[in-house]
Nucleic acid binder design. Structure first.
Length: 870
RNA sequence: GGGCGGUUAGCUCAGCUGGAAGAGCGCCUGCCUUACAAGCAGGAGGUCGCCGGUUCGAGCCCGGCACUGCCCACCA
């Protein structure tokens, strides 16, 4: 190793991520290992399509966790020798982007209507050019080994062709249609939105009782409503057919107050007789429930509220032009004036709101494009039922997915926006003709009139649904498609299982014949430390980039992986800190090894029991880590590796080996080879989780070696498993710990050597280790039970026997006595419990023999220890 | 209104098919031992939400309750 690098290693007692990460990332990119040329089959290759972040976005904690997860998977498979592709790109994110561009225009003192559609779209692209890099650079900061060379955008030309292709085919298959239907109208974005973009919020309203005069003149029929203003569009009154109070009125008519319209009284079982008065005013134009009742009874559909959220001419002169809230007040006032309000009470209920704009949804009948789902859903259900597509963890997500698909409803796919995929639909101005095609017709085929294109764009999720295959060049039969589709894994949080995952599965099967991926790990949602949602608007968000700056990307990755699980978790910076500490520990242990070993090839050349022990432990750790990652259990994988490295390699192996490592004389080449092998193995195992620090240390290992990221993942080496060594070193560790505890309890100063007699089996080859690490001079008792330490002042129980402690200076008699009393009490209690258990005939007869046997041995041990206490 | 999950050490969370309660952080004690003081060694701390049940034995299985979170839903 060059002198200056060695020097750097010597002087740096702390790992400084900020000085390393950019440099390491550049090496990966230069080497081009994130990109794989298409070859072979999708079955032998490994691919993951990233959930494309919004171009407008910045990396948030969800991206960071999901990015870490996908990167662990991709890095593992890459090391395992698979041809790997992590499909990367961004989403045009219709509404989100349009909102940002509109904000920009507002700051410029203009708006989209002034500049026109064409200019607006141009500005949006410009905006994307300028700000779209941010999120990409942030993924690189995280260390994500995605294929940046093949970056995609959901509005690239090729991608747009795929979207158009799908729309046209779906239309041809009668799965896409245009209809006048009730939609969730968002007055904020002035667009229809899908059911999935609506959220319920509880709202305090007033429930009004309004009297509708009966036409017969024989009194009134009172209805209950929280939206009096919609009465202006009432076209009927409904009662439950079984409601005897109203049976006689069914088929009769009432008069709509303020308007005078004649309202038929109909019977419908959807009316709850328990609620309000049991009579329901029917407004087919402004209520989803009424809409259905209206269609079933052939009622007129009137629109009194326009898309601008204001009352239309249908509402009548008095109310036209008012916004909904004003209209409500005006209607109530007018009704009061006529004495038709017979009650009003506060009423809390949940009301649909737009997730996008936060505005209250206005249910409206509108001419929109829909995608029929009844034929697309069954294959998506089937592939999960058959196990060709699996969720991890299986419960509850499999059922959640199946339930939703089982009751799927039409998807409103048109949006009244400018930024997005404009529908490939043209209308003839002159006649009624509609054209749905991949290319614009020149003129109307029927009347030769001019055609104009549909103004609406598609729901962003429509294009996202094609992501796993449209990114690979579909519908062209590209080499990429052949090599990487279907993909293997789709990793996400639960919030977009319906919005995105299910739709990808349906579209994937419909257009490629196969589910787009086979495994769907669903990860935690990271909450704010106080348990609230992490969100920018609440001010509860924590910026992952700041954490990377403070602790390093490896630390953030480790922390997020370690804290995540199958359920939601509160963010804990301590876990990130733990990751940082691990990176530092890794750095320092590497210094210890690298600055002392000889320049030899790393390989397992065990000379001693502790060598055999650590090699065996590492084999187990390798198998375990592989299994955990492959099983999508990242938290346990991270913590397991932390424990092995810190708790076994550092705390014990390196301490056990120090005398040999520091020895002035002797051949250290075998030890060096083994130590380097241990280090090498740990770097390999930790690399998917902590790629930067491991890659950096890798460069200090001897020999000409390539990138760690491209180094083979260790396979199984059963020959290194060594029960005997694990047993012997395990006992030694137990003995050292017991003796140290004794020292502490007896108040012995840290530097003082104690002496004792070892009377225990199994320490033939470890007695010197035990003596040194426990700071005990141990005379060989030769094992067995000879108690020649006649004047022993105490006995410390260790695995396989005891150590008789001989009197010496530095012992605190009082502390010793306290220890004896406390330990004796505890022992007697435990003995009592064990005795009671063994005296229980039920236990002895019914429990498995081995459990009973273990209990007996435990009791013997406890009694022995109590006896040795004296 | 349905459905699902959570309730374990001061905090954040693990606990596999039921067999003597774990980790990290925090806390206490002692150590600058020539890799790391963001370190090392040792320790304290838990009626596993509550009430019943099954079992020789329950954090784990069953029933009920309480609190809490999430998802779905057209009751005005």
């Amino acid at each position: 190793m060059p002198r200056d690098r060695l020097k750097a290693l010597e002087e740096r007692t702390r790992y400084v991520a900020a000085e390393v990460e950019a440099r390491v990332f550049a090496r990966w990119e230069e080497a081009g290992i994130f990109h794989s040329e298409p070859d072979g089959s999708a079955a032998e290759n490994y691919s993951i399509a990233i959930p494309p972040p919004n171009v407008t976005g910045a990396l948030h904690m969800g991206h960071a966790l999901n990015g870490a997860i996908q990167d662990v998977l991709v890095r593992l498979r890459r090391m395992q020798g698979r041809r790997t592709k992590w499909i990367f790109g961004t989403d045009h994110a219709g509404i989100a982007t349009q909102v940002k561009v509109e904000e920009m225009l507002r700051e410029e003192g203009t708006d989209r209507h002034s500049i026109g559609r064409e200019e607006f779209v141009r500005r949006a692209w410009q905006w994307r050019e300028r700000y779209g890099r941010t999120i990409v650079e942030q993924y690189k900061r995280l260390g994500a080994s995605a294929d940046y060379r093949d970056e995609r955008f959901t509005m690239d030309d090729a991608y747009a062709r795929a979207v158009t292709h799908v729309f046209v085919r779906l239309f041809e298959r009668d799965l896409v249609y245009r209809d006048n239907y009730m939609v969730n109208w968002d007055p904020g974005t002035r667009s229809a939105i899908s059911d999935l973009e609506v959220e319920q919020r509880s709202v305090e309203d007033r429930l009004y009782m309004i009297d509708y005069p009966l036409e017969s003149g024989s009194g009134t029929l009172t209805v209950a409503t929280v939206r009096p203003e919609t009465m202006l569009a009432d076209t009927a009154i409904a009662v439950n057919p079984d409601d005897e109070r109203y049976t006689r009125l069914v088929g009769e008519y009432a008069r709509l107050p303020l308007v005078g319209r004649r309202l038929k009284i109909v019977a419908d079982s959807r009316v709850d007789p328990e609620f309000g008065t049991g009579a329901l005013k029917i407004t087919p134009g402004h209520d989803p429930n009424d809409f259905e009742i209206g269609r079933d009874h052939g009622l007129e559909e009137l629109t009194a509220i326009g898309e601008d959220g204001r009352m239309t001419a249908v509402a009548g002169e008095r109310f036209a032009g008012l916004d909904v809230d004003e209209a409500r007040a005006a209607v109530v006032e007018a009704l009061h004036a006529e004495g038709l309000v017979s009650g009003a009470s506060p009423y809390a209920h949940s009301v649909p709101h737009s997730q996008r704009s936060g505005r209250r949804i206005e249910p409206l009948i509108s001419l929109q494009w829909f995608c029929a789902m009844e034929r697309l859903a069954p294959p998506a259900i089937e592939c999960v039922r058959e196990g060709r597509l699996r969720f991890h963890p299986e419960r509850p997500w499999t059922q959640v997915y199946l339930d939703w698909l089982g009751e799927i409803r039409p998807w409103c796919i048109s949006r009244q926006l400018w930024w997005g995929h404009r529908l490939p639909v043209w209308y003839c101005d002159a006649c009624e003709e509609t054209y749905v095609a991949e290319a614009a017709p020149e003129r109307c085929g029927a009347c030769d009139g001019t055609v104009r294109r549909e103004e609406d764009v598609l729901d962003t999720w429509f294009s996202s649904a094609l992501w796993p295959f449209a990114t690979l060049g579909w519908p062209q039969p590209t080499p990429e498609l052949r090599a990487f589709y279907p993909t293997d894994v789709l990793s996400t949080a639960r919030d977009i299982i319906f919005l995105w995952v299910a739709r990808m599965v349906m579209m994937g099967i419909e257009f490629t014949g196969e589910p787009p991926f086979t495994d769907v790990p669903i990860h935690s949602v990271i909450q704010a430390p106080d348990g609230r949602r992490m969100s920018k608007s609440l001010g509860t968000g924590i910026d992952p980039l700041e954490l990377i700056d403070a602790h390093g990307a490896d630390a953030l990755r480790f922390g997020l992986l370690a804290m995540s699980s199958s359920q939601d978790v509160r963010f804990s910076e301590e876990k990130v800190r733990q990751g940082q500490d691990l990176a530092n520990k890794l750095w320092n242990a590497s210094r210890l090894i690298l600055l002392r070993v000889e320049d030899v090839e790393p390989q397992p050349l065990p000379e001693t029991l502790e060598d055999r022990w650590i090699l065996s432990r590492l084999e187990r750790a390798t198998a375990r880590a592989t299994e955990l990652i492959e099983g999508y259990d990242f938290a346990h994988a991270a913590l397991e590796l932390y424990g092995v490295f810190w708790g076994e390699v550092c705390d014990w192996y390196l301490e056990l080996v120090k005398p040999r490592l520091y020895a002035e004389s002797g051949d250290r080449s075998r030890l060096s080879a083994t130590l380097l092998h241990v280090l090498e193995r740990m770097l390999q195992l930790l690399h998917p989780i902590m790629p930067f620090v491991t890659e950096e240390i890798w460069t200090f290992l001897p020999g000409e070696r390539g990138l760690l990221a491209a180094t083979p993942w260790p396979g199984r080496a059963g020959a290194l498993l060594d029960e005997e060594a694990e047993q012997a070193i395990g006992a030694a560790i137990g003995a050292v710990t017991a003796l140290r505890r004794y020292r502490d309890e007896a108040g012995v100063a840290a530097g003082t050597q104690l002496s004792g007699v070892l009377a225990a089996e199994g320490y033939e080859r470890t007695v010197e280790h035990v003596a040194r690490l426990a700071r005990f001079e141990l005379a060989g008792g030769g094992g067995g039970d000879d108690r020649d330490g006649g004047e022993a002042i105490a006995s410390v129980v260790i695995p396989g026997g005891v150590v008789h402690v001989l009197p010496s200076g530095g012992l605190d008699a009082e502390a010793l006595e306290r220890r004896r009393t406390a330990r004796g009490g505890a022992l007697r209690k435990e003995i009592e419990r064990a005795e009671a258990k063994l005296a229980n005939e039920g236990f002895v007869q019914k429990a498995p023999a081995e459990v009973v046997q273990a209990e007996r041995e435990k009791l013997d041990r406890l009694r022995e220890e109590l006896r040795s206490l004296g």
